[in-house]
């Protein structure tokens, strides 16, 4: 299971890579592995605002439909439209292919997220 060190993680298996006021978000290797072949991604809309943990998209695989929750409060400023045509990119490289970029409204949300070590431990307990 690939869990890169520099990212922050949610218990719903999203990651966020923070760069100043912005954060790229996506789903983890654990998420893509358990969802199986992803066949559809419903992206958030640019300009959409969401609180931490609020639903901003949908990821559909042959097995299941999962909600994408915003890892932190913020406003969507960019979405990865490539995923609409090629949802399999999330299976192939879940960390290389971000889903959206948000502008963070409250940095204190980030303190509630898990480090790579904590998330590794969290996933271990799920098995």
């Amino acid at each position: 299971m690939n869990i890169p060190k520099k990212l922050l993680y949610t218990s719903e298996h999203e990651w966020i890579r923070v760069d100043g006021e912005k954060g790229n978000i996506g789903i983890t290797d654990y998420a893509q592995h358990h969802l199986g072949d992803i066949v559809f991604v419903e992206l958030p809309e640019v300009g959409e605002e969401a609180a931490m943990g609020e639903s901003i998209g949908v990821i559909e695989s042959v097995k299941a439909v999962a909600t994408l929750f915003s890892p932190a409060g913020g406003k969507v400023i960019e979405v990865n439209e490539e995923l609409e045509e090629a949802p399999e990119l999330l299976n192939e490289d879940p960390y290389g292919n971000w889903i959206a970029i948000i502008e963070l409204t409250d940095h204190s949300d980030l303190e509630k997220l898990m480090s790579a070590e904590a998330y590794t431990e969290f996933c271990k307990n799920l098995e």
């Binding site: 072949d37 066949v39 559809f40 559909e60 042959v62 949802p87 399999e88």
Partner: peptide, 10 residues
């Protein structure tokens, strides 16, 4: 035989 559900969906 086993259908290719992934391609069918994508």
């Amino acid at each position: 035989r086993r259908v290719d559900e992934v391609t069918a969906a994508r």
